[in-house]
Nucleic acid binder design. Structure first.
Lengths: 200, 200
DNA sequence: TCCAGTTGTTATTGACTAATTACTTCCGTT
DNA sequence: AACGGAAGTAATTAGTCAATAACAACTGGA
């Protein structure tokens, strides 16, 4: 199973390690706050070695967003609707079910919108958002939706709310029913009747 | 009109100046990226003087989010529904119409979700999100909505999408009709049929 | 006029960070 | 066995940033 050497990896492997580590760091610290030192340490390499694969931090950043959006769309490709379930419903169900395991992936995207002061990042996100929107519209169309664009926009909106709520730890501050209410398009639990700091 | 001295201001005035400047800087650079030097320069004072009013950058940050959320709710209080318009529809209309003038205010909130690695910021945003959600539910209830929580969650979701889209400059990359489609709950224009980089 | 409180600045520091340079270590090939 | 390329590190640097300390100037009142 793979080379005997425990330390030396191939360039391609290291690149993936770095991207993995960068996703983790960026998901919490943001694109500006994540340091190449922390990314390197998490990847198990020295800080300067990062620059062997990505000439600047910015190129690494753009590679990270591209990867996360690609993973999201890749995940969605593999979602199969259950019986009596539309494609959009299946995507929505997956979104909530896979939330814990895809936390990093989604938080990186939130960070990317926040980092849009950089024109290159903004352009990248316009591109990626168009990709995602396009995919959702396609599925809505296959579902035979009367207004695929409206349904897609609503679906997308809910995703943004969920991402933001997840970022501030609302899922662990709410009861499962309340959290399900936030995620669902229909029923929503009575969040506003709780005390101001439910987690305290 | 006010003291003759062009340079010296009262403490209360300076505090407001600093908060104004901090909002501007944070809206683009983020909470981590905004520097006290840039904030001070924008406010027309020296960098160390900022710390006379806010002992740490973190306290300034929390004051900024509190201010922006307060402004949003304050703005909403002043919205009056037109004829044949529900309260929620009026709030939504205001949101889109006031977008250019309230850009900073809304971007700061996006930045706040991204800065939620800090537990204090996360707790503050849970608190603020609850306030906002509570207010929307109240209006939906007054409208006689069948499911005020569901309507409020949908309304809130749309706001998150709009904020993120605004952050990446989607409004200026789209035709007015397309942009209106993103903002509206009903009709949505065919964004996905455009070329990948519409602004280029 | 002098005092005390408020307004404000300059200079500095210690910590941190992206990026560069120069060097070393390992492995497959001939 | 030795050579060339790939994998990887240590040391450093120039710049940035939040926060502190010390000092200066203005203002209103007794």
């Amino acid at each position: 199973m793979e080379p005997v050497s425990a330390t030396r990896h191939s360039g391609a492997e290291r690149r993936e390690d770095i991207l993995d580590a960068a996703c983790e760091e960026i998901s919490t610290a943001g694109f500006g706050g994540a340091t190449t030192a922390a990314i390197a340490q998490r990847a198990g390499i020295s800080q300067p070695y990062v620059f062997r694969f990505f000439p600047t931090k910015k190129e690494l950043s753009l590679a990270v967003v591209d990867r996360c959006v690609g993973q999201l769309l890749g995940d969605w490709e593999r979602v199969v609707p259950k019986q009596d379930e539309t494609r959009l419903q299946a995507l929505g169900r997956w979104y909530v079910e896979a939330l814990p395991s895809r936390r990093t992936q989604l938080l990186v995207q939130l960070q990317a919108y926040a980092a849009a002061e950089d024109p290159d990042m903004a352009e990248a996100m316009r591109h990626h958002l168009a990709r995602i929107f396009r995919y959702i519209v396609l599925q809505a169309r296959r579902d035979g939706a009367a207004d695929p664009h409206a349904d897609a926009a609503s679906f997308l909106s809910r995703g943004f709310l969920i991402n933001a709520a997840m970022a501030i730890g609302l899922e662990s501050a709410l009861t499962p029913e309340e959290w399900a209410g936030i995620c669902a398009k229909g029923e929503v639990a009575r969040v506003e009747d709780r005390r101001e700091h439910p987690a305290a």
